[in-house]
Design a protein around this nucleic acid. Structure first.
Lengths: 216, 216
DNA sequence: AGTGTAGTTATACATTTGTATAAAATTGTG
DNA sequence: CACAATTTTATACAAATGTATAACTACACT
C-alpha cells in the first residue's frame, strides 16, 4: 500500500483551498456537517492539514467567516467602484450588487446566518462581525453623502449616519429574505424594489436611482 | 442509591419546559452546545425524556425553531393589536415592538440566525421559515393598507405587497444589527429611526407615525 | 388502600469527533 | 543527483454524542 500522492501548494493557495472547502461544507450541512474530515475530503487533502494551517478547527472556522465577509463586501464595493457614472449611479450599483448574484445567493446567506449565530457567545466572531459591519456602514455612508449633495439635501454627519443605518437595514433584510427565496415573490423584483425604496428613504426625486439611465 | 425524585407534568407543560430549555442552550452555545444531555440538565430532567416527547433530537430542534418564530410574531402582533389608536398607531406599535425588548434581544437574534442557517438544506426548517415569513408579511400588509387608506395614498394589492416586502426588509435588517448591537450606535435610536424610515418608505407625511401622539 | 399506566430515570453502546504525533513524500537548492 | 526542509499523510486515542431499551415511580382511578 503506497501513500496518497500529493502536490505541494504555496501557503496562500492552500489556505484559500481549505477556506473554500470549509465554506462549501458549512453551506451544505451547517456547522454540524463541517467536520475536519469532511472538509479535508472536500479540499482533497487529509485532516491533519487543517490543524497544520489553522491551529485548530475553531481557527479554521473563524478564518472562514472572515473570508466570507470579505468576499461579500468586496463584491459590493467593486461593483460600485466599477460604475463610471455619477454618485447616483455608484449607489445604484452598490444596491443592485446586493440584490443579484453572486451576493444574493442562498448559499451565501446560509453561511452568513450560521456564523452570525455565534457572534453572541464567541469573541472572535463578535470582532469579525463588528469590524465587517463598521466597514460596510462606512462604505455605504461614503456612497450616500455625495448623492445627498447632488440633490441639495441636508448631509450632516449625523444625517448620513442615520441614513446609512436605515439603508443598511433595508439591504440586509431584503438580501436575506430574497436569498432564502421563500417562493412568495420572484427575486427578479428586488433590484428595482431596493432602488426605489432607497430613493424614498433618502427622499430623492423618484427615478434618481432606478431611472432609465442605462437604456437597453 | 435511590433514583432521582421527579414530578409528572402535563404534556403541554413538559413540552414547553423542554422547548425553552432547548432555546436557552442554543442561545448560549449554539447548536453545538445544545446536546441532549445539556438540554435535559437545563430542563431538570434526564436525556431520555427528549426522545420520549419529540422522537429525536432533530424533532426537538425543529419544534424549538417553530416555537421561537411563533413567539416573535405573536409579540409584535399583540403589541399592534393592543394599541387602541388608529391605523397609524397600530403600525407604529408593530414597528416599535420589533425595535424593543423582548423581541430586540441578542439572544433572540442569535437563535433566529442559528436556525435560519439550516433553512437551506433541511426541509422542515424551510417549511417553518416559509410559513412564518408568509404570516409575518400578511400581518404587515394588513397593517399597511389602512395606513395608506387613511392618507389617501394608492393601495392596490400589488402596491401593498411591495411596501410590505420593503418594510419587512427594513425591520429584519434593523432588528438584526440592532440586536447584535455592535456598539456603533445605541439601540435607543431604533424606535424613532424605524418609524421615520417607514414613513418615508410609504411616503407618509413626516410625523404620521413618529409624531407626538402620546404625550408623556 | 390497591393497582395499572405511562411518565421518567438509568444504563449501555456503537459511532463520530477533534486532537496529537510519528512517518513519508514532494520540492527547491547546491 | 543527493540532501535538507517542511508540507502532507497516516494512525491512534480519549471524549462526547445520539439512540435504544429496560427498570422504576408518581399519580389517577376504583
Amino acid at each position: 500500500m503506497s501513500r496518497k500522492a500529493f502536490r505541494r501548494l504555496t501557503l496562500d493557495e492552500r489556505k484559500r483551498t481549505l477556506l473554500e472547502a470549509t465554506l462549501t461544507c458549512v453551506a451544505q450541512q451547517g456547522l454540524k456537517g463541517a467536520t475536519v474530515r469532511r472538509i479535508a475530503e472536500e479540499a482533497g487533502v487529509t485532516a491533519g492539514l487543517l490543524r497544520h494551517y489553522f491551529g485548530s478547527k475553531n481557527g479554521l472556522i473563524t478564518s472562514a467567516y472572515a473570508y466570507l465577509i470579505g468576499q461579500l463586501t468586496a463584491e459590493a464595493e467593486t461593483r460600485a467602484r466599477q460604475s463610471t457614472g455619477d454618485a447616483n449611479d455608484q449607489l445604484r450599483h452598490f444596491l443592485i450588487a446586493n440584490m443579484t448574484m453572486p451576493n444574493l445567493s442562498e448559499e451565501k446567506v446560509s453561511l452568513w446566518a450560521t456564523f452570525i449565530g455565534r457572534v453572541r457567545y464567541e469573541t472572535d466572531f463578535a470582532d469579525i462581525h463588528r469590524e465587517g459591519y463598521r466597514d460596510y456602514l462606512s462604505l455605504l455612508e461614503g456612497l450616500i453623502e455625495p448623492v445627498l449633495a447632488a440633490h441639495g439635501l441636508p448631509r450632516s454627519a449625523a444625517a448620513c449616519r442615520r441614513h446609512a443605518i436605515a439603508v443598511n437595514g433595508l439591504i440586509d433584510g431584503l438580501w436575506m429574505e430574497g436569498s432564502l427565496n421563500s417562493g412568495l415573490y420572484s427575486r427578479a423584483i428586488l433590484p428595482d424594489l431596493v432602488t426605489e425604496a432607497c430613493e424614498r428613504l433618502l427622499e430623492l426625486p423618484a427615478g434618481s436611482l432606478s431611472g432609465e439611465k442605462q437604456p437597453t
